[in-house]
C-alpha cells in the first residue's frame, strides 16, 4: 500500500502525526510530511485511521 499526501490541502490539523507518528511527521509550521512511501503491512490500519481522521481529506492510498 502506497501512501499519498496532498500537501496543498494540509493546513496543519496534525491528526495524522498524532495518530500514526510512524508514518507522518510535522514540518516547522506543523504541516504534515510523509515518513515512508510504502506502508508496512503491520501499520496499514494506522494509516487508514490517519486518513479517516484528516479533516481536509489530504491523505490517500495507491
Amino acid at each position: 500500500m502506497k501512501l499519498c499526501l496532498e500537501s496543498g490541502l494540509c493546513v496543519g490539523h496534525g491528526r495524522c502525526y498524532e495518530l500514526a507518528p510512524e508514518l507522518f511527521a510535522a514540518d516547522e509550521s506543523g504541516h504534515a510530511l510523509l515518513r515512508v512511501a510504502v506502508v508496512p503491512p503491520e501499520l496499514e490500519s494506522k494509516a487508514r485511521r490517519a486518513a479517516d481522521n484528516c479533516p481536509e481529506s489530504a491523505i490517500g492510498f495507491e
Partner: peptide
C-alpha cells in the same frame, strides 16, 4: 501571516 504564526503554535 499564518506562515509566520503557525510555526509558534505547532504541537512541538
Amino acid at each position: 501571516f499564518r506562515k509566520i504564526l503557525d510555526s509558534q503554535f505547532t504541537k512541538k
